[in-house]
């Protein structure tokens, strides 16, 4: 009876004759966190961008909460899907507070004062109430990423998509971002995360999906995947990133 919050069915995408996604299907339940991993070029980021049509899939269906993601209502649908980018993409001309508030007044039509009040609460939630007046260029990478998470949260998203949220950060700054993400997972936010941050995957993911060459090779709970992955490719990949993530997160 209970429908998954997000259902992805037979997703295909090609770029210039190269098939990047070759029929991806999986579900995400309400409150679930899934982490997508896989080698560079495996299609994880493309998959993530297809969910809210930042990249338009060639074929397949994406259903969010019984609502098919289609082009003619894409702005309204996107407003309910949080997206956190690898390089933050905060609006450089707006202070942190207005970065969070702008979607509320411009997209939701809220008056600016209420939007700012709401934005202030979201900044507090990511521990940045004291940096509300700072411009992005005045914030550290970790702080910028937390502001961008607050920007996503302000829109009351049904799901948040994270595209390598810590890959652009110095190692000492990843933890503050990961901690915010962990807290969201605990609070029951539905999250789909492309990341090689294995600390986060182990502690917060309900499932890990391993992708390679445009297909899902294997998926399962982290402890199971780490202990006995069925496929040699999965084992090899997990060994590589578990060995290296202590120094630095793999770049895509």
């Amino acid at each position: 009876m209970s429908e998954p919050l997000l259902r992805i069915e037979d997703l295909h995408k090609s770029y210039a004759g190269t098939e990047v996604l070759k029929g991806i299907s999986f579900d995400l339940e309400r409150g679930e966190t899934k982490v997508l991993i896989g080698p560079s070029g495996s299609g994880k980021s493309t998959l993530l961008r297809c969910v809210n049509h930042l990249t338009r899939p060639d074929r397949g269906r994406i259903v969010l909460d019984g609502d098919e993601v289609v082009d003619n209502r894409i702005n309204a649908i996107r407003a309910t899907i949080g997206f956190v980018f690898q390089d933050f993409n905060l609006f450089t001309h707006l202070r942190a507070l207005d970065n969070v508030a702008v979607g509320l007044w411009r997209v939701r039509g809220m008056d600016r004062r209420s939007a700012r009040e709401r934005a202030a609460r979201e900044l507090e939630r990511v521990g940045l109430a004291n940096r509300a007046e700072a411009y992005p260029a005045e914030l550290s990478g970790g702080q910028q990423q937390r502001v961008s998470i607050a920007r996503a949260l302000a829109m009351d998203p049904r799901i948040i998509l994270f595209d390598e949220p810590t890959s652009a950060l110095d190692p000492e700054l990843t933890e503050e971002v990961v901690e915010v993400m962990r807290q969201l997972a605990r609070e029951g936010m539905t999250m789909l995360v492309v990341s090689h941050e294995m600390g986060f995957a182990r502690s917060a993911a309900d499932e890990i999906i391993f992708m390679d060459h445009g297909v899902i090779v294997e998926e399962g709970p982290p402890e199971k995947l780490f202990r006995d992955a069925q496929h040699a490719r999965t084992r090899d990949f997990l060994r590589i990133i578990s060995g290296s993530h202590a120094q630095e997160e793999g770049a895509s």
């Binding site: 809210n52 930042l54 702005n75 309204a76 649908i77 996107r78 407003a79 309910t80 899907i81 997206f83 980018f85 390089d87 993409n89 905060l90 609006f91 450089t92 702008v102 979607g103 411009r106 997209v107 961008s148 920007r151 996503a152 829109m155």
Partner: peptide
């Protein structure tokens, strides 16, 4: 281009 993409991702039309 990331500025435009981020604006579109929170649901803004291209004009907005």
């Amino acid at each position: 281009s990331g500025q435009m993409v981020a604006a579109r991702a929170i649901g803004m039309s291209r004009f907005d």
